Amino acid sequence: MKMNDEKMGSASGVVIAVSKSDKHTFSKENCNSIKLLKGLGVEGDAHLGKTVKHRSRVAANPNQPNLRQVHLIHSELLDELKDRFNVAAGQMGENITTKGIDLLELPKDSLLYIGETAVIKVTGLRNPCAQIDQFKSGLMNAVLDRDQQGNLIRKAGIMSIVLESGEVHPGDQVRIQLPPLPHAPLERV
Rank of each mutant, 00 (worst) to 15 (best):
S12N: 09
G13L: 12
K20Q: 02
S21D: 08
H24G: 00
F26H: 12
S27T: 07
N32I: 06
N32C: 10
K35V: 14
K35T: 14
K35W: 14
K35L: 15
L37R: 14
K38Q: 12
L40T: 05
L40N: 13
G41K: 02
G41Y: 09
D45G: 01
A46I: 13
H47D: 11
L48F: 15
G49K: 02
T51W: 07
T51D: 11
V52M: 02
R55G: 00
R55M: 03
S56I: 13
S56Y: 08
R57P: 00
R57K: 14
R57V: 08
V58A: 11
V58L: 10
V58T: 14
A60C: 02
Q64P: 01
P65H: 10
N66P: 08
L67H: 10
Q69L: 10
V70D: 08
V70N: 11
L72R: 05
H74T: 15
H74D: 15
E76Q: 12
D79P: 01
L81G: 10
F85Y: 13
N86W: 01
A88V: 04
A89H: 01
G90H: 11
E94G: 03
I96L: 06
K99D: 04
K99I: 03
D102C: 13
D102M: 12
D102I: 04
D102H: 12
D102K: 11
L103R: 01
E105Y: 07
L106H: 04
L112I: 09
Y113T: 09
Y113H: 15
G115D: 10
T117V: 09
A118E: 00
K121D: 02
V122Q: 03
V122G: 04
V122C: 05
G124S: 07
G124L: 01
L125Y: 04
L125D: 05
R126M: 06
N127S: 07
P128A: 10
C129V: 12
